[in-house]
Amino acid sequence: MPTYAYILVSLALFFVGAAGVLLRRNVLIVLMSVEMQLAAGTLALLSFSRALGDQKGHVFAFFVMALAAAEAAVGLAIVVSVFRTRRTASLDEVNGLKG
């Protein structure tokens, strides 16, 4: 399939992820949406890598994946920690930065 089709899928997945991040109340689903967005980015990287015939895109996709794993680990740790202190997993109830 031509590259643009993959790019369109990647864009669509990124948008769905963005909508999830912006709208959902549950921290876990927000984190999943973030993962989804990162995966969409990976897809775009790999598509262009094939189009250009350059495997550096794969290396970057690898790094993105590692980064996503690290992000998931720390993010989930924060969720657990916040849940312990506040007994909540809802983003709208975690507003300690309110001015």
């Binding site: 993959y6 990976t42 890598s49 094939r50 996709a61 690898f62």
Partner: peptide, 17 residues
């Protein structure tokens, strides 16, 4: 998505995914 990766000849990344 891993399947898509495979169709892009990104075998290593598909497995990693």
């Amino acid at each position: 998505l891993a399947g898509l990766f495979a169709t892009l000849s990104a075998h290593f990344l598909a497995v990693l995914q």
